[in-house]
Amino acid sequence: MSATVQRAMSGPVPKIRVRGLRKAFGGKLVLDGIDLDVMPGTSTVVIGGSGSGKSVLIKCILGLIEPDAGSVEIDGKSLLDSPARDRAAARARIGMLFQNGALFDSLPVWENVAFGLLAQNRVSRPEAKAKAAEVLSQVGLAASVGDLSPAELSGGMQKRVALARAIAAQPDMLFFDEPTTGLDPIMGAVIDGLIVDCVKRLGSTAIAITHDMASAQRIGDRAAMLLKGKLIWQGDASALLDSGNDAVDQFTHGRRDGPIQMELRR
């Protein structure tokens, strides 16, 4: 059966299709056969314990970490197998917020925010600076912040600058690794609103990692839970709090007792 026929039979093509993804570091298996589909214009939140491999999963999807096995297709094309030029074109449509911000500390904030635009030669430097100020205001930062260096910002401000950098080029795929961790509740809600806005208004496709259930339900259409290298549950984000899965229940309600045993001192 040809791939196109197969696709015609299985309905719309997912924007992101992950199959059998495996990744081990040394002897430690982190991802053990992940299958995930993300439809165009929807957002999926990934939840899971600390160290369960959420960041590794997102980096594998982006092709920043080479998986040991499995495939990642974006718009039906594998990022890792495609030639460098196609990969660059695909990456140009991707925005990524790294868990620790990963701001370029040698550049002022505004150049960080406008980096993607400048790299694609889409704007002149003055235009880029104006655009950066605009995006900074969307994440609740004054334009004057643009002239500071990232090291002069608080942790929460760095996170918002990183978010501004991820969305500045209006990419059609967005990846957020803990976008609201370290922000106060009000700013968290503002950022959630901004992410929803990117998905709903611009029609972007998003994957977000979060530990905050309220935020997960605000951002996500779909949700998935990662445990011991597998996605043990996938469903609607609205069903997160009563999923019927014991492990998800324990996690989302933050209970100490349940199927998930934290590996504390023994």
């Binding site: 920043l64 990456r91 701001l103 370029f104 993607g116 790299a119 080029a169």
Partner: peptide
Amino acid sequence: TMRVTDQIDALSTLSTV
């Protein structure tokens, strides 16, 4: 430092080799 703080990965997500 850029490697261990993900800045090198960030470059490749920003249309830069």
